[in-house]
Simulated scan of single mutants.
Amino acid sequence: MPAESRLADGVRLALTTFSTLPVPAGRVDRAAAGTAMALAPAVGALLGVLLAGVLLLLAALAPPLVAAGVTVGAAALLTRGLHLDGLADTVDALGSYRRGAAALEIMKKPDVGPFGVVALVVVLLVQTAALAELALRSRPAALAAVVAATAAGRLGVAFACRRGVPAARPEGLGALVAGTVGPVALVAGTAAVALSAVAAVPGRPWQGPLAVGAALAVAVGLLRHAVRRLGGVTGDVLGATVEVVTTLVYLGLVLSG
């Protein structure tokens, strides 16, 4: 397959996987999947620009908490709520203390258990509170913060799809993307996201990159735990990674010393 065609297919797959943007479907195979997962942070940055626009526009018209709540809702709409669903399913499975097929069966159930509900409530509350704080900052700082957090969440997916991480099932999104992202893409993505976070905290250029690095470190640890319990990654695990990393970066950006 020509490199140009593979890149185009990867871009389309990245956009359709991580957003609701109306993009025509292209070829879906592991080559395209690897490109899509490597480009995931770029899609996150694009979503971040849109969400920052929503936050800043509403913050000029309504209280910061209202603007933040609507922005969190917009984030769910732009991603079909798939990442939140993945978070709930993953936490339910891990919270059951079951392993392997038994845990994966819990993830397939359409209902949400108590662990999943608590995880959703905590994540949504923290994101809303953080965005309300960011709405009070300068426009460039708020834009940088939302872009960095949203891009970092998708960079977490690239780390979850790095070489050596298996899929938990022989079918599904996890099987398609597991082990498709190489080290060069991870290094480049990490550097780009860390750089985007420099301007997120006025007067503290180190805090944004540190927040990104710390969130990714936590995500890698949680991923290892999920692989031990589930046998590998699934689409739900990838969604959970997005929400965990995004939330932790937001939290790191609003902490003050």
Results as ranks from 00 to 15, higher is better:
Met1Ala: 15
Pro2Gly: 14
Pro2Ser: 15
Glu4Cys: 01
Ser5Asp: 15
Leu7Cys: 08
Ala8Phe: 11
Val11Gly: 12
Val11Ala: 15
Leu15Gln: 04
Thr17Phe: 00
Thr20His: 13
Val23Pro: 00
Pro24Val: 01
Ala25Ile: 02
Ala25Gly: 15
Gly26Trp: 04
Gly26Lys: 06
Val28His: 01
Ala32Trp: 06
Gly34Ile: 00
Gly34Met: 00
Ala36Phe: 05
Met37His: 03
Leu39Asn: 05
Ala40Glu: 01
Val43Tyr: 00
Val43Asn: 02
Gly44Leu: 01
Leu47Gly: 04
Gly53Trp: 12
Leu56Asp: 14
Leu61Phe: 07
Leu61Gly: 07
Ala62Glu: 08
Pro64Asp: 12
Val66Ser: 03
Ala67Asp: 05
Ala67Tyr: 07
Gly69Ile: 02
Thr71Lys: 05
Gly73Lys: 06
Ala74Val: 15
Ala74Leu: 10
Leu77Ala: 15
Arg80Lys: 04
Asp89Tyr: 10
Asp92Arg: 04
Leu94Gly: 10
Leu94Pro: 03
Gly95Gln: 07
Gly95Cys: 14
Ala101Asn: 09
Ala103Trp: 02
Leu104Ile: 06
Ile106Pro: 07
Ile106Trp: 03
Pro110Phe: 13
Val112Ser: 14
Pro114Ile: 12
Leu120Cys: 11
Val121Trp: 10
Val121Pro: 05
Val122Phe: 09
Leu125Gln: 05
Val126Trp: 00
Ala130Tyr: 03
Glu133Asp: 09
Ala135Cys: 05
Ala135Leu: 09
Leu136Met: 05
Arg137Ala: 15
Arg137Cys: 05
Arg139Glu: 15
Ala142Tyr: 02
Leu143Thr: 14
Leu143Ala: 13
Ala145Leu: 13
Ala145Met: 08
Val146Pro: 00
Val147Ala: 13
Ala149Val: 10
Arg154Phe: 04
Arg154Leu: 05
Leu155Glu: 04
Ala158Gln: 03
Ala158Leu: 07
Phe159Arg: 12
Cys161Ser: 14
Arg162Glu: 10
Arg163Ser: 14
Ala167Trp: 06
Glu171Leu: 08
Leu173Ala: 01
Leu173Ser: 06
Val177Trp: 03
Gly179Phe: 00
Gly179Trp: 09
Thr180Met: 12
Val181Asn: 10
Gly182Asp: 00
Val184His: 05
Ala191Asp: 04
Ala192Asn: 10
Ala192Arg: 09
Ala194Glu: 11
Val198Cys: 08
Ala200Phe: 01
Pro202Tyr: 12
Gln207Tyr: 00
Gly208His: 04
Gly213Thr: 10
Ala214Gly: 08
Ala215Phe: 02
Leu216Gln: 02
Val218Asp: 06
Leu230Val: 12
Gly232Asp: 08
Thr234Pro: 03
Asp236Leu: 08
Val237Tyr: 14
Val237His: 12
Ala240Met: 13
Val242Arg: 03
Leu248Tyr: 04
Leu251Ala: 15
Gly252Glu: 09
Leu255Lys: 03
Ser256Tyr: 02
Ser256Pro: 02
